[in-house]
Design a binder for these strands. Structure first.
Lengths: 231, 231
DNA sequence: GCGCCCAGAATATGATCAAATTATTTCTTG
DNA sequence: CAAGAAATAATTTGATCATATTCTGGGCGC
C-alpha cells in the first residue's frame, strides 16, 4: 500500500528511477546501434513485451520514439522493422555527415577544455585496444561514444541531435559491414583530430573528422553496391 | 462487458482508417507548426485527452513521437511543453537550413518534371494571395507546404526528414515573430527559384532558396536578440 | 520554516476488440 | 487421382480503453 519508505535517493543510483518506457527505449536503441537487430528484421510489439519482460504501453512508446528518429520503420500494415537502407540512402547519410561532423568538430575545437581533451584521448586509447582485440561490439560502441562526446562538446544541441539521429539510421548496416570485414582496416583519424584540437587548429580538426567519416561511410556504401549475396 | 464505444467515426472523414495515434499526431503537429501552441506553453496528457476527445494511449504515443522530433520538450519532472528556443538555437537552425535547403533545391532542380514545376508555381501564387490578404495562418501553412513539396521532389528521404524536423522546431517561434510583424515584408525568393528551375540552373535555384531561408530565419533571430518583452 | 498529507497528473497493466497473416480445407481442373 | 488455387478457419498481433499504481507539487498544521 504505502511506499513512502523509498525516498528519491538523489545521490548516486538515481538512474534506477527512470520510467520504464525510457529504459526500454535505451535498451532497444543500444540493440539497434550495436547489437542484435539486423537490417530488415521485423520487430513486433508483443515479441518485445515477451523478450524484455515489460508491459505493452512502455514498449509501444519506445517504438514510436524510435520510428520518429528513423531507427525503425513503419511498414504500412502495422508492421515495424529495422530499415533496410539502399545505396542511395547511404549516400544521403554520407553527404549529411560530411557536412555535420566537421562543422561540429570545428565548434568543439573552439570550446573544448583540456580535461575534455584528455577524456577524448583516453576514449580513443580504449578504442584502439578494442580494435586490437578484434572486439567488434566494443569498437562500435566506443567509436559511437567518441563521436557523441564530440557532439556534446560542440555545444549545439540541435545539430548534435541531427548527427546522433544519423548514427541510429546507419548503425545496423555499419554492424553488418564491419562484421564482414573484421576490425582490421577500420578508419581511425581520431589521432590526427586530437592533435589538431590540441593545437587549436579547428580547420584541421574538421578536415580530419571529415576524412574519418568518409573512410568509414564509403566502406559501407561500397559494400551496398555489390550484388547482395544474402541467400 | 461495456463495449458501447463503437468506432466513434469522428468527423466522417474518408481517412478514418488511420489509427487514432496517427490522427492525434497529425493534429498536434499542425497545431504546433501553424497554430495554437505557443513556445513555452505546457502540454499535459490529460488536457489533450479532454481537448481532443481521445483516449490516453494514442495521446501518449503522439507526444512521445513529437518529443523525439524535437517539436515538444520533456522538462525533467514529467512535464512536457513546447520548447522555448534561445538565440543560439535559432542560429543552429539557420546554419543547418542554410546547408540543407540549398542542397535539396539543387537535387530538386535536377529531377523536377514540368508538371511538378507548374504545381509549385501554382502553390506560390496561392501563397501570394494569402500574403496580400494578410492571412498569417494560411501563409505559414502554404509556405511550409511549398518547401516540403520541394523536399519531396529532391528524392532524398533522409535529408528531407532532417529539413522537415527543423520546421517543427522553429515553427512556433516563427509564428510568434510573424504575428508581431504582420505579413508585409515576408521573404519570397520563390519566383527567382522557380525561374532558375525552369532554366535548369541548379546553382542559381540553390542560391535563391538560400537567400529565402536566410531572410526568413534572420528575422526570427533578430527578434530573439531583443530583450524579451513578454510580461 | 519544516514536515506531512492530499489532490491531481503521469505511468503502467491487463483486458478486449479488430485486423491481418498463416494454416487448413475443399473444390476445381488437367 | 493429383495438384493448385481459392476460400475459410485459426492464431497471432496491433490498437484502444478502463483502471490501478506511483510520483510530483502544493497546501495545511505544527
Amino acid at each position: 500500500m504505502n511506499k513512502q519508505a523509498r525516498k528519491p535517493d538523489s545521490g548516486g543510483g538515481g538512474e534506477s528511477r527512470l520510467p520504464a518506457h525510457e529504459l526500454i527505449y535505451r535498451q532497444l536503441r543500444d540493440q539497434i546501434l550495436f547489437g542484435d537487430l539486423a537490417p530488415g528484421q521485423a520487430v513486433t510489439i508483443q515479441g518485445l513485451t515477451d523478450r524484455l519482460g515489460a508491459g505493452m504501453t512502455p514498449v509501444r512508446e519506445a517504438i514510436r520514439r524510435l520510428i520518429a528518429e528513423g531507427a525503425l520503420e513503419f511498414q504500412g500494415n502495422r508492421r515495424v522493422s529495422v530499415p533496410l537502407l539502399s545505396a542511395d540512402n547511404i549516400s544521403e547519410i554520407i553527404v549529411a555527415r560530411q557536412w555535420l561532423d566537421p562543422h561540429l568538430a570545428l565548434r568543439a575545437t573552439e570550446r573544448i577544455s583540456l580535461e575534455e581533451l584528455d577524456e577524448l584521448t583516453e576514449m580513443d586509447a580504449t578504442l584502439d585496444r578494442a580494435i586490437e582485440q578484434g572486439d567488434l561490439r566494443a569498437y562500435l560502441e566506443l567509436n559511437y561514444r567518441f563521436h557523441k562526446r564530440l557532439y556534446e562538446i560542440a555545444d549545439a544541441p540541435i545539430l548534435a541531435d541531427l548527427a546522433d539521429g544519423l548514427w541510429l539510421r546507419f548503425g545496423p548496416s555499419l554492424r553488418v559491414v564491419c562484421g564482414r570485414m573484421g576490425t582490421q582496416n577500420l578508419p581511425d583519424k581520431h589521432k590526427d583530430m586530437l592533435a589538431a584540437m590540441h593545437a587549436r587548429d579547428a580547420e584541421r580538426a574538421a578536415r580530419a573528422i571529415r576524412e574519418d567519416v568518409i573512410q568509414g561511410m564509403e566502406q559501407v556504401r561500397r559494400s551496398f553496391e555489390l550484388p547482395v549475396a544474402s541467400f
